[in-house]
């Protein structure tokens, strides 16, 4: 079918509008972060004014954004790997194994999705302060406190469970006849077949851990262990801090997310699509 000029125009207008809505704020942040002109809280520049890197240099050397960036990257790297591993193993058990209490465990995992983080914040705080038997120390104020509470995530367990259920049982049987043990079946047959789903849960897990704000607030009070979102918040309420510097740190905080998305874009879209088609 041929599109007429007014149709093209209308379509172009919609695209332009979407572009402004989604990319506008990014553009504003970039323009402000690279401008010498100072802005008030809540203001953004629409066009760079007297381009400069000063705010970034200040954010890096004085605010020491690199410490928080390092913390965030460390937590997200270890956290994502652990989370994906644990989710995949849990999903394998739930999808492929018959055991007593499987339904209850499924339900228990699912129920954790119903609880907002705020509700569990006090119990979590208390647990993090619990001294570990034999060691006599708690994990409070450590990287472990920033990572371990995020390792079990119902969303990724459930997504992977559904994908693993779809792997034909014959394949598992064939591998068993071929002489594979449980771990070999998992690693060589199941995991390669749910790779798209693993890509999806990895990205979602990455974003979920990267965005954590409440947990670091509860888990650590040593500023040197703060992650980027916590620091952003503290800069936001810092009245003498220049708004441009705050925005420069925001840009720094955004970069890793964009890099990861670009790297795994294909997996991300495929994972979303296959999930959608499966219904």
């Amino acid at each position: 079918m041929k599109t007429t000029f007014p149709q093209k125009l209308a379509r172009g207008a919609v695209y332009a509008l979407l572009l402004i809505v989604f990319c506008g704020p990014f553009w504003g942040i970039l323009a402000t972060a690279f401008s010498k002109t100072t802005v008030q809280p809540g203001q953004l520049l629409l066009w760079p004014d007297q381009p400069t890197l000063d705010h970034f240099i200040y954010a890096w050397t004085e605010v020491k954004a690199w410490i928080y960036l390092f913390n965030s990257l460390l937590v997200v790297a270890i956290g994502t790997v652990l989370q994906t591993t644990v989710s995949a193993l849990a999903a394998y058990a739930l999808a492929r194994k018959k055991f007593r209490g499987a339904a209850f465990i499924s339900l228990a995992i699912l129920s954790t999705m119903m609880l907002p983080d705020e509700v569990i914040s006090i119990p979590l705080y208390l647990i993090l302060h619990q001294k570990i038997p034999l060691l006599g120390v708690s994990i409070y104020n450590s990287y472990a406190a920033l990572i371990l509470p995020l390792v079990g995530w119902a969303f990724s367990v459930f997504l992977l469970t559904e994908f693993m259920k779809a792997v034909p049982r014959d394949l598992e049987d064939a591998a068993r006849v071929d002489g594979a043990n449980e771990i070999q079946i998992f690693l060589k047959v199941i995991v390669p077949l749910v790779k798209p789903a693993l890509g999806t849960t990895t990205i979602f897990g990455f974003l979920m851990i990267w965005d954590q704000y409440l947990l670091p607030l509860i888990a650590v009070d040593d500023r040197s262990l703060y992650t980027i979102p916590v620091v952003l918040r503290s800069l936001r309420v810092d009245e003498i801090m220049q708004q441009n510097i705050f925005i420069a740190v925001t840009v720094i905080a955004t970069v890793p997310c964009i890099v990861v998305y670009l790297l795994l874009q294909k997996q991300f879209n495929r994972g979303l699509m296959s999930g959608a088609v499966k219904g």
């Binding site: 014959d170 049987d173 068993r176 006849v177 047959v189």
Partner: peptide, 15 residues
Amino acid sequence: KQRDIAMVFQTYALY
């Protein structure tokens, strides 16, 4: 794996 058998499946079950 210890029975020394090989099986051909209806669905082929190729990896």
